[in-house]
């Protein structure tokens, strides 16, 4: 098995589209001499992912996440640069490559709406040419892990969103792919179900050594699954590396939440007030002065409650995009 799952070098993709002013005259003019604009969706992206790694792909809407994933999965042809995944050039879409990858999209379903998932499993088994024996074994594994049981025998339209997502995952993993693209896999699910899906993905990654590329808006997904993140900003790589390091680098502050007995006094002198309540406040305090500030708070006020928290990952990422960290 290769040590690296994906390598890209200077990977870029731009889209060209014609722009047109409203009105008939403009329509005619654009017919004769169209004005085209070029948008660089992904620009000079280079990275390497080792086999078995889980990488989170973060970025605001329009940052180029989807374009990048589509190039890695072979759905889009790069404008320039190189990409290799599992030893293949993805956009050639060779069957040997396609049989080893899977794509899961949180908002799109491929299971037949009217049928029990078990029926669709059988079809995908045939398409991926998984031997019956092996498929049965994989399926029983997946059903255990996902706690599916009877769910696969009910028509998909009667399933809850969470059950449906679990079935989608089982479908995608039927052929035990080595490379898994997950696009917002927990979108719309309740917190508990999100946690279960995360647990399952970790377990699958551990057991099969599969490489996973994850895009998600839920930082909890990223935090739980990814050691490594790739931050994309307007098509360029803003940061590529360890998630913990990023959060240490940018998490220069901590949040101190304080409640006092009686009406809250002015707390501005202890740190930047993020939020004020009737009996307290949330303060942003530089990491190194946290011990001193808490000591002062405790001695100068009758404190009924005091907590110190790391800045949430959302905040770190927001900071990263605002300040533009470099890798």
């Amino acid at each position: 098995m290769d040590a690296t799952a994906i390598t890209t070098r200077g990977l870029s993709r731009s889209f060209r589209f014609t722009v047109r002013e409203p009105g008939l005259g403009a329509a005619l003019r654009s017919l004769l001499r169209p004005t085209t604009h070029e948008v660089r969706a992904v620009e000079a992206v280079s990275f390497e992912i080792g086999a078995g790694e889980i990488m989170g792909l973060l970025g605001q809407n329009g940052a180029g996440k989807t374009t990048l994933v589509k190039m890695l999965a072979g759905l889009l042809h790069p404008s320039s640069g190189e990409v290799r995944a599992l030893g293949h050039v993805p956009w050639r879409r060779e069957k040997g490559f396609l049989r080893r990858i899977a794509l899961v999209m949180g908002q799109r379903y491929r299971l037949d709406w009217h049928l029990p998932a078990a029926e669709s499993f059988e079809m995908y088994r045939a398409i991926y040419r998984v031997p019956r024996q092996e498929c049965r074994r994989t399926l029983s594994d997946l059903c255990d892990l996902l706690d599916l049981g009877e769910v696969v025998l009910k028509p998909v339209r009667m399933l809850s969103l969470g059950e449906r997502m679990k079935c989608e995952l089982a479908t995608a993993l039927l052929h035990t792919p080595d490379l898994l693209f997950l696009d917002e896999p927990t979108i719309g699910l309740d917190v508990e179900m999100q946690a279960r899906i995360r647990g399952f993905l970790l377990e699958y990654n551990r057991r099969r050594g599969a490489t996973v590329i994850l895009t998600s808006h839920y930082m909890a997904d990223v935090e739980a699954l990814c050691e490594r993140v790739l931050l994309l900003d307007r098509g360029r790589v803003l940061y590529d590396g360890d998630l913990g390091a990023l959060s240490r680098r940018l998490g220069t502050h901590k949040t101190v939440r304080v409640e006092v007995a009686g009406p809250a006094p002015e707390l501005g002198r202890y740190g930047e007030v993020v939020e004020r309540t009737a009996t307290g406040a949330r303060l942003r305090v530089p990491r190194e002065s946290v011990p001193e500030v808490t000591a002062r708070l405790l001695s100068e006020h009758i404190v009924s409650d005091l907590t110190v928290e790391d800045v949430p990952l959302e905040e770190v990422v927001r900071l990263a995009f605002a300040s533009g960290v470099s890798a």
Binding site: K70, A73, G74, L75, R93, K95, G96, L98, R99, I101, A102, L103, M105, R108, R110, I127, Y128, R129
Partner: peptide, 16 residues
């Protein structure tokens, strides 16, 4: 723009 599922199958995409 959602032909994706048909294209990632290891089967002739026209057939699918």
């Amino acid at each position: 723009g959602r032909l994706d599922f048909a294209l990632v199958l290891p089967e002739d995409a026209q057939l699918v």
